[in-house]
Amino acid sequence: GKMTGIVKWFNADKGFAFITPDDGSKDVFVHFSAIQNDGYKSLDEGQKVSFTIESGAKGPAAGNVTSL
């Protein structure tokens, strides 16, 4: 299901971020390909987002990341 959280930090050079979920679970890795914005895919620290949890090769990662 959809979860919500806050972007903890975003590394534009490497194209990934971490989200701190609102439910208090541990921070979730985000690859820029999961960001659903049109055009430039970036996130801002402190931004509120919704996302799903996908199981990636290196463990859980956020999918369908959308700005709220």
Rank of each mutant, 00 (worst) to 15 (best):
G1R: 07
G1W: 08
G1F: 08
G1K: 10
K2R: 10
K2C: 14
M3I: 09
M3P: 03
M3E: 03
M3V: 09
M3S: 05
T4Y: 09
G5R: 00
G5K: 00
I6P: 01
V7C: 04
K8E: 01
K8V: 08
K8T: 05
K8W: 03
K8I: 11
W9C: 15
N11A: 06
N11F: 06
N11W: 07
D13W: 06
D13E: 12
D13V: 08
K14Q: 04
K14L: 05
K14G: 04
K14A: 02
G15K: 13
F16W: 03
F16A: 02
A17D: 00
A17N: 00
A17G: 15
A17W: 05
F18G: 03
F18Q: 07
I19S: 00
T20L: 05
P21C: 05
P21H: 01
P21R: 01
D22A: 06
D22M: 07
D23I: 03
G24P: 00
G24A: 02
G24Y: 02
G24L: 03
S25F: 04
S25W: 03
K26I: 06
K26W: 05
D27Q: 05
D27E: 08
D27H: 04
V28M: 10
V28Q: 05
F29Q: 09
F29K: 12
V30Y: 06
H31Y: 14
H31S: 14
H31R: 10
F32Y: 13
F32Q: 06
F32I: 11
F32L: 12
F32C: 14
F32D: 02
S33V: 06
S33G: 11
S33Y: 07
I35C: 12
Q36G: 08
Q36F: 09
N37G: 09
N37P: 12
N37I: 10
N37A: 11
N37F: 10
D38M: 08
G39T: 07
G39F: 10
G39Q: 08
G39S: 09
Y40E: 13
Y40W: 12
K41C: 15
S42H: 12
S42L: 12
S42Q: 13
L43D: 01
D44F: 14
D44R: 13
G46Q: 02
G46P: 01
G46L: 03
G46A: 02
Q47N: 05
Q47D: 09
K48L: 10
K48S: 12
K48D: 02
V49F: 02
V49W: 01
V49R: 00
V49D: 00
V49G: 00
V49A: 01
S50V: 12
S50Q: 10
S50H: 07
F51P: 00
F51V: 03
T52C: 14
T52Y: 06
E54R: 02
E54T: 04
S55N: 09
S55I: 10
S55E: 14
S55Y: 05
G56V: 11
G56M: 07
G56E: 15
A57T: 14
A57R: 05
A57D: 15
A57S: 14
A57L: 14
K58I: 15
K58R: 04
K58A: 15
G59V: 10
G59W: 13
P60E: 10
A61R: 03
A61I: 14
A61M: 12
A62R: 03
A62H: 08
A62N: 10
A62T: 10
A62E: 13
G63F: 03
G63Q: 11
N64C: 15
N64P: 07
N64T: 10
V65A: 06
V65K: 06
T66L: 03
S67G: 12
S67H: 13
L68N: 15
L68G: 15
